[in-house]
Design a protein around this nucleic acid. Structure first.
Lengths: 345, 345
DNA sequence: TTGTATGCGTTATCAT
DNA sequence: ATGATAACGCATACAA
């Protein structure tokens, strides 16, 4: 049997006061005499009184908790985002409830219902790579659930959004390869329906165009599960490498795609970057140590989380419906390893 | 203004029934006539009625949420553990509330108070590397808050514990180096007050002893912040390398220590394993791709999380106080990269 | 079979 | 300056 926490009622009984008096004393109301106030405060401190947040939630019709929906917690990008969210939430007296979709639409829907049924005050989310049907999200939006998208956004829903400059990240990465003499650059992208995918692919294409390299559609392969499954990336690599004109470099458009390309290269004894160069989006801790095999496009994940949490909390706490929605676009950073150390370029 | 969810009272009013009848009909009570039941259920379904979990919590004195306290969410080991916890929690109708200590005792204490004040039904935790004073945890324990420790446990508190076989992990790792001909193996360990630290250090010492190698105290350095700060590991490396008898191999006893040793080696242009070998505890995704620079001791993090969550939920839901506490010890796995692929040894 | 009343912990409103 | 009461949404002991 669990320890019963002390309540206002307990304090009232012991001190021979009414619950309302105690409540007011604790909230430092002006209409309570200094002596009573002192007495109540002293006793409350002594007994380590803490207001019951659940009772408070019931009364205030808010739970002081925000839901976070990501594809996969055990993914460095998402865990870094959650890290940022948690720190801001904590500062503002909110708690963070985590749910994951595992890149699966059905799980995503059930997780959203789950969060809503937990009466979170708002939700920060990144849609699963599988999702093409946004009706559940749309529904929550219409029911005025405060939402903030990050990374993988839904264009058709008008709310705060936080993303990185995916276009520029991919553009810079491609240009980086071109400048280093690569002439036949392939791109393994995430699921085509994701906003981040088209942005990155467009950056890739734009860099080719600007450098007068022709875009070859055979050099662009999509991974519908975001590279989560190794076999998916393996198939993509096989497809790319069976061409007569084999690519001499690859852009990996997601964490998992990048690492699975490396895994494939290792398995097939393809040397990076001797046989083929690789630059990838990745937020893994070690990626800057991996070179010379790899250059890395790193997303400011913690910052994204913080910003998303700030926007959401502002949204929750504003009395009137928000009229102006922000779309914050943060810069990605490209890291390249020189002979000595990883350096930002 | 947020959408107002439908309540039992609303249903009762529309259907001309009392709230208790509706409540009972929804819970499929035997004392309600089939017709009434049908009517209520149909309307509830139509209106997409969901019971308010907060009201339920207030009534039942349980929140159906479990708190998780880790050092750092954005650490692959912890995020993998959280991943496991979340999946089990979800299955059992619990939600997961995250808090992090950042390896700081003051933050740890405040996070614990925070979770308790959020009236979680139980807490899964791994103590911060800084912590030497367990009085707050002890207090919660005495107040019957269900607790499950994982990884970094507190021996003096009698409750369920989930750890990996740290002794054997370090023992095997050391033996692995010895078998490969290393003669002067150093160990960079975590904070000395952590349970995992002494276990790993003991495994290291035992392997040396068994192989008739003398343990040299100068070859053992502790990192009080768990290697979280790069400078800490840098200092440890400098200390080790300034000896006349420089070590020819290093065991890194934590994720961050391992990667920061690599970072140091890279910075100082020390080749791994040519100049010095390294085997480290690490749960990073890429570590098995890093070789030949590194062998890795990997912890079954997801499993630990699942097991911890199962134990905690069982504990929460058992009516009587638990009499027998489990201490589950899971095996660690050592990975070594051969010329072609990472293989488990 | 159904309805009424009470309580979970808190605060706001209305007395006194 | 303080107390009594109602309300948040739900479940349940007790009446009818």
């Amino acid at each position: 049997m669990k320890f019963e926490a002390i309540t206002i009622k307990d304090i009232a009984k012991v001190l021979g006061l009414s619950t309302s008096t105690v409540s007011r004393a604790l909230r430092d109301s002006y209409e309570i005499s200094p002596e009573t106030k002192e007495k109540v405060l002293a006793y409350a401190r002594e007994m380590n009184y803490r207001p019951n947040p659940i009772a408070l939630s019931l009364k205030e019709k808010r739970s002081s908790s925000i839901g976070v929906l990501v594809a996969e917690i055990a993914n460095s990008f998402f865990s870094q985002v959650i890290n940022g969210i948690e720190s801001v939430a904590q500062e503002n007296g909110y708690n963070v409830i985590i749910a994951q979709s595992k890149e699966n639409h059905a799980k995503e829907v059930s997780a959203l219902h789950y969060l809503a049924s937990r009466s979170v005050d708002g939700i920060i989310l990144s849609v699963s790579s599988e999702t093409t049907d946004f009706s559940v999200i749309q529904q929550m939006y219409e029911k005025k659930m405060p939402l903030v998208f990050f990374d993988r956004i839904v264009d058709s829903i008008q709310t705060h959004k936080v993303t990185v400059d995916n276009f520029k990240g991919a553009y810079d990465a491609t240009l980086h390869l071109i400048k280093n003499g690569y002439k036949n650059i392939a791109c393994i992208a995430n699921a085509p329906q994701l906003s981040i995918t088209s942005e990155r692919v467009n950056g890739y294409k734009a860099a080719l165009e600007k450098s007068k390299q022709r875009f070859n559609p055979a050099n662009l392969v999509y991974c519908n599960h975001g590279g989560l499954i190794y076999e998916e990336v393996e198939a993509a690599m096989k497809q790319l490498l069976k061409q007569k004109q084999k690519p001499d470099a690859i852009i990996g458009c997601a964490d998992k795609i990048t690492t699975n390309v490396m895994r494939y290269a290792q398995k097939k004894r393809i040397a990076i970057p001797t046989d083929i160069a690789l630059i990838g989006f990745s937020n893994l801790d070690l990626t800057d140590l991996l070179s010379p095999s790899l250059s890395v496009v790193r997303q400011p994940a913690g910052e994204m989380g913080k910003m998303a949490a700030e926007l959401l909390i502002k949204m929750i706490e504003s009395k009137r419906p928000v009229s102006e929605f922000q779309h914050a676009v943060l810069p990605a950073e490209i890291f390249q390893r020189s002979s000595s150390a990883a350096k930002k370029i």
